[in-house]
Simulated assay, not measured.
Amino acid sequence: MSDGRVKATPPVAEDTRLRLTIIGGYLGSGKTTWLRHQLFEGVFGKAHIIVNEAAETPVDDTLLSAQASGMTMLAGGCACCTGKADLVEVLRRLCDARTSQRAEERTQGQIILETSGLADPASILDAIRQDGVLVHHIRVTEIIVLVDALNASDQLRTEYLGRAQIEAADRIIVTKADAVPVNILGRVAATAQTLNPAAQIMAATKGQFVPLQDFSAALPFDLPVISGNEPVVPTKIDIGDDVDWATFSVWLSALLYARGADLVRVKGVFRTPAGPILIQAVRKSVQPPELLPQEAAINQNKMIFIGRGYIGDDLGRSLDFFAS
């Protein structure tokens, strides 16, 4: 029988686990460009950045390190499969470092994981949940997946991974929104919503959010059943000092024209007299070169090619023959 007194509600314990945001998206979707802008705007505060690249020679760490409180590079394998053990080790190390701090010095730390374009965020989430240490020290707050508006139609029709990434997202950001007509942008958003009805869908251009018009009447792309594809693999070529910028740019244009459907992604930093230039291409579309600060010299003249249906050594021989 109640005595009429209101019982005090016990206080809810504060969740002091490290917060982890996973940023995914297919090759060339603009993850680094978007994240650079968010870090510059202070959206994630003083975050520790983990960058995962499937290729052994990283590029994105140079572009992100200036705005990060800490940086860890995982190169040479996807964090969802071949690089999973390395990711777990890094996350455990970050947890240990925070635990060693005195309780009054701890803040609610933030980790950002920029995944490889070949990674499935759902597999990374599973790895954290299945690890007896990480599950108690890390809270995955959001999975953000970027979708390339310019190439989404082809990618989602042919690449199962592109669909799986969208299906794992809490929030979907359609990038390069200014590069396609409004009706195509609407179809990309509608297709993403079909694949993941629960996700929030937004649009961005060059890392900045832009309005996304109502797409409720847009028709999603017809997505056929995908049979087994030849795997997409990364390869690296070192560009010799005898190859100048003009020669390389003409060779790359010819290569993308002939093999753009096979080369899903090209990325690297080229040394020029004016300074290091960031080169990025998605299939046959080359982004305008970006002049980087001199400290980006660490991996200059190392270009990463990611695709299928070619032998990596052939690319180097092709460039050498063209430059001779």
Rank of each mutant, 00 (worst) to 15 (best):
P220M: 02
P220N: 07
P220Y: 02
F221P: 04
D222E: 02
D222V: 13
D222G: 05
L223I: 11
P224Q: 02
P224Y: 03
P224K: 09
P224A: 03
P224W: 01
V225A: 12
V225E: 03
V225L: 08
I226S: 09
I226N: 01
S227N: 10
G228N: 11
G228C: 10
G228H: 01
N229L: 10
N229G: 07
E230C: 00
P231C: 05
V232H: 06
V233T: 15
P234G: 12
P234Y: 15
P234E: 15
T235L: 03
T235V: 04
K236A: 10
K236G: 01
I237Q: 02
I237S: 03
I237P: 01
G240H: 11
D241G: 12
D241L: 14
D242I: 11
D242E: 15
V243E: 08
D244H: 15
D244M: 12
D244P: 09
D244F: 15
A246L: 08
A246G: 06
A246H: 13
A246V: 14
T247R: 01
F248M: 11
S249P: 01
S249Y: 05
S249A: 10
V250P: 02
V250C: 10
W251Y: 07
L252S: 06
L252C: 09
S253G: 11
S253D: 09
L255V: 14
Y257F: 10
A258L: 10
A258V: 07
A258F: 02
R259Y: 04
G260Q: 11
A261P: 01
A261G: 04
A261V: 03
D262L: 12
V264F: 06
V264A: 11
V266K: 06
V266I: 09
K267L: 01
G268V: 07
F270G: 03
R271M: 09
T272N: 08
T272M: 06
T272K: 07
P273V: 05
P273T: 02
A274R: 14
A274Q: 15
A274K: 13
P276R: 09
P276D: 10
P276F: 04
I277V: 15
I277D: 05
L278I: 02
L278A: 09
I279R: 11
